[in-house]
């Protein structure tokens, strides 16, 4: 009875989370949804007399793999969301149709198969020692090979992610020289950007700095906050105007 209850709750949660993984626009939400699916699967393993696999699932998947995913997401850029333009015409429609058909086909096949009552794992009262016995006797060669696989994968990742520095590292002197050359060429301000809130009534990060004449210093507008507020529609009109009239700030926003 308890198992049935756990199954239905977790089945609903995991299917909804899996759908969220596929259909959420932001990659970070997808990652979190995948974490939910993995955790509920871990509980399902525990319910099905596989406590060792449940623990391994949590440690390896929700611990290591998900962390790696989030790490790479942060590196590659969180806001690199999918474009909605279809490169192949009708691809989404046919993909969803094929997926639905596949799911229905599999479910019907499983539903029609004769599956007797489960034998259960009562013959193996202790999960971990029994698994260890199997892994280190019958599957010992495969187990040893996986160690070679893991080492190869780790080495491969190191080699793939390694980058040789082709140009010498820029020192502070080079950077300053570059800034002033830029100033001579385009007149771009060589000084640091003004901080938010200078001469302003609020000392908050989302409040632009005011120039002595009371107008808004467009360069002080935090571009991440401005981008967010533009998407939310809460960007104050005077800030938007200042941003539009200032070409350098626009350039910054494009970066």
């Amino acid at each position: 009875m308890g198992e049935t209850f756990v199954f239905w709750v977790l089945a609903v949660v995991s299917v909804i989370a899996a759908l969220g993984l596929v259909f959420s626009r932001k990659a970070v939400y997808s990652a979190l949804m995948l974490g939910v699916v993995m955790l509920s699967l871990a509980v399902l393993y525990a319910v099905q007399d596989a406590p060792f696999l449940a623990v391994v699932q949590i440690i390896v998947y929700t611990g290591a793999v998900m962390m790696l995913f989030l790490f790479v997401l942060m590196m590659v850029g969180v806001d690199s969301s999918d474009s909605l333009v279809e490169t192949i015409k009708g691809q989404r429609f046919w993909a969803v149709l094929a997926g639905l058909g596949f799911a229905v086909l599999l479910a019907l096949g499983i539903g029609n198969a004769f599956i007797g009552p489960a034998k259960g794992l009562a013959a193996y009262p202790q999960n971990v020692p029994s698994l260890a016995e199997l892994i280190f006797t019958r599957h010992v060669f495969a187990f040893e090979v996986t160690s070679a696989l893991l080492i190869t994968a780790a080495l491969g990742a190191v080699v793939l992610a390694h980058r040789e520095r082709l140009t010498p590292k820029l020192t502070q002197r080079d950077l300053a020289r570059q800034r002033f050359k830029e100033f001579a060429r385009t007149g771009r301000n060589p000084a640091p950007l003004p901080g938010p809130g200078t001469y302003a009534r609020h000392n908050a990060i989302d409040k632009p700095a005011l120039l002595p004449d009371g107008s808004i210093a467009a360069q002080s507008v935090n571009r991440y906050v401005a981008r967010y507020e533009k998407a939310e529609g809460t960007l104050p009109p005077e800030v938007a105007q200042a941003l539009e009239s200032d070409s350098e700030a626009l350039e910054l926003e494009k970066e």
């Binding site: 759908l19 596929v22 997926g99 799911a103 599999l106 479910a107």
Partner: peptide
């Protein structure tokens, strides 16, 4: 098994979409 099939199909749709 049906839950497993559903999750597999959803994953497949995700790879395609």
């Amino acid at each position: 098994l049906v839950l497993s099939a559903l999750l597999f199909a959803i994953g497949g749709v995700g790879v395609l979409v």
